[in-house]
Design a protein around this nucleic acid. Structure first.
Lengths: 222, 222
DNA sequence: TATCGCTTTATTGTATACAATTTGAGAAAG
DNA sequence: CTTTCTCAAATTGTATACAATAAAGCGATA
């Protein structure tokens, strides 16, 4: 799938991430085809991929809806991520090279710079954070593991979490990456695994706290 | 996807499992469409699913081939399964009900009966074994976990393993299920997790040994 | 003879028309 | 007033034709 299918995928994904398509909204192929300027064929393709990403679910009768995520669902996803990314970190430690280490360091330096000022550059943080984790995953060297994790990361819910991070949360994320670098330098897989699992779990609690706060605000406003 | 797409999926999958389509073989949409008596559209659909199952891989230029599995790949898949099914067992222990327990026992009794004679009924063993594991997974109650594991189980390679089991291996599998039942009865999640992880790992070594044997036979015959 | 570049062929990607299915509204019966 | 049945509208599934792209063959040239 080249142009049209990718275009549809990116556009629909963006609509969901931006909230233009809200959780629970029905998703009709023809409407999206028109909206994206392509035919239904690549849209169906894109919907299938988004379903694999769990951003869309289908009813028994094959109608599509934007997925809604309960806090339990999110907790579930984070727990699985903690386990799988922990395993990835352990394997990455075993396969670590000087070149990868250099790139990981460079990534985390960019993260440090992005969050150092008064106005943290969240977009850069997210990009480099994704790059960091992708690099670890790649170094783990398991196609299958990569496949599995792809379905878990970059969920809408995860994606928006960092927008509610406190300055301390950003700092903590940065320094956990730094710890991870130490573990990789020493090729200490068990340590890397522990740090990574904790790193993901902390991200969940950051999300959970922010979510809690949002709910209270909503209740207060209502 | 109803008729045509499912038909294509089942037929192509069967072709791969039976070896009619061997590892590394190119997979052309039109040829399969003709073979399955449907058009290319549902075939493309089926190929997409098979790719998610890792039974097919696509090159950068989107041409499809039947996946080949090195021993390392298989080990990888089993290790991930051990981790994820172990986790599933832990969760299942927490959510266990009398009804599910009853069904699990019934499953394993059927397995016991299938392997008791001189000629183990491998088909029944495989069916009931799958049912047993599916039930545990369902009881774990995590859609996401189910999603992830679906990509790992029922690989061609896994599927054929039991055909090389020794009588002792069948017996061991049966009695490990029995241990699992004990853990579930006592709602001991940690125990269930340990047993399940070991169970999957043992299955890998059974595969690995059989594979080794096959390779030696091939070398001997050549 | 090896290699580069063009032409031809094979294969996949996309659009569109049509078939099958599901949903929902409204009428008829209880 | 509720329920159920029927039929129309909306939506997805499939087939087919055509467009785009990648592989392969083939010749010219160094």
């Amino acid at each position: 799938m080249t142009k049209a299918s990718d275009r549809a995928y990116d556009m629909i994904r963006a609509m969901i991430l931006s909230g233009e398509l809200a959780a629970g909204d029905p998703v009709r192929e023809e409407a999206l085809a028109e909206r994206c300027g392509v035919s239904r064929t690549p849209v169906r393709d894109a919907l299938r991929r988004l379903e694999a990403d769990l951003m869309i679910r289908k009813t028994e009768s094959q109608r599509s809806f934007v997925s809604d995520w309960s806090l339990d669902d999110v907790g579930d996803a984070f727990e699985l991520r903690a386990m799988l990314e922990g395993y990835a970190a352990k394997r990455a430690a075993a396969h670590m090279t000087a070149e990868v280490l250099r790139r990981l360091r460079s990534c985390n330096e960019a993260i440090g710079a992005a969050i150092s000022g008064n106005h943290p550059d969240v977009a850069t943080f997210l990009d480099r954070n994704r790059e960091f984790h992708a690099l670890v995953l790649e170094t783990a060297g398991s196609r299958r593991l990569t496949n599995l994790l792809t379905a878990l990361i970059e969920q809408p819910v995860v994606w928006r979490t960092a927008h509610h991070y406190s300055p301390e949360a950003f700092q903590r994320s940065y320094s956990e990456h730094d710890d991870l670098l130490s573990a990789f330098e020493r090729r200490d897989g068990a340590w890397a695994e522990t740090i990574m699992a904790g790193h993901i779990r902390r991200a969940f609690h950051a999300y959970s706290d922010a979510h809690q706060g949002l709910n209270e605000m909503e209740r207060g406003a209502a």
